[in-house]
Simulated assay, not measured.
Amino acid sequence: MRAPFQILAIPYRVDTSGVTFAALRRSDDGNWQGVAGGGELGETPFQAAIRECREEVGVGSRNRLATLQTISSVSVEHFTGRDHWPSDLFVIPEYCFALNCTGKDLVLSAEHTEVRWGTYENTRKLLHWDSNKTALWEVSRRFGHF
């Protein structure tokens, strides 16, 4: 059963030329975003992030994820499988993470049709959701050596 929280993970890589970030194109609506998904009952946000990253891009482990300070809210209308949530629940928290993909190739699940790696500026232009843009900014500041 789906827990009333969402996770978001921003994939990034570090190499000799600097830091690049990934945006994933959703197969259902065509929007660009990071790895996103719902927690399951009994999971912590960190555990859900590891699972979602493994499922969606084939990279996810405790030592590749960093918890971000960014936490957003998402209206419940965006989620299916919420029938068991309280009727007076209007928004759920979205916990954000950075996913270190250095040295790894992403293997996309059927949820995504394409991945694009780019600079902070290029990746930000692709992202649809404001929460993704905020998390990307934090990842760029933490790991981008600014």
Rank of each mutant, 00 (worst) to 15 (best):
G18A: 00
L41E: 12
L106D: 07
R54W: 06
N132L: 01
S75R: 15
R82T: 10
G58V: 10
R124L: 02
Y12N: 09
H145I: 10
H84Y: 13
S140W: 15
Y12T: 12
E43A: 08
L126N: 08
S75L: 11
R141G: 00
V139F: 10
V57E: 09
A49G: 03
D28Y: 14
R25Y: 03
L99M: 10
H145K: 13
H145G: 11
A48K: 06
S73K: 11
V35R: 13
A98D: 07
T134P: 02
R116G: 00
I7D: 01
L127M: 11
I92V: 12
D88C: 05
L136Q: 11
L41I: 15
K104E: 03
V57I: 14
W117S: 01
A49C: 05
V107S: 07
V35C: 09
Y95E: 02
E138N: 00
V91K: 07
G34Y: 14
Q6N: 12
T44L: 01
Y120N: 01
H112L: 02
P86V: 03
A49Q: 10
E52S: 04
R25D: 00
G144S: 00
W129F: 10
V19D: 04
N132S: 11
G144R: 13
S17D: 12
R13L: 07
F46M: 00
Q69A: 03
R54A: 00
A9M: 03
V76K: 10
L126K: 15
S131K: 14
P86T: 10
T67R: 10
R54Y: 07
E77R: 14
H84T: 03
L8G: 10
G37K: 11
A98L: 11
Q33E: 06
E40S: 05
Q6T: 08
R124S: 02
E121T: 15
T16H: 07
S61D: 04
F21R: 03
T16K: 15
G18T: 08
D83E: 14
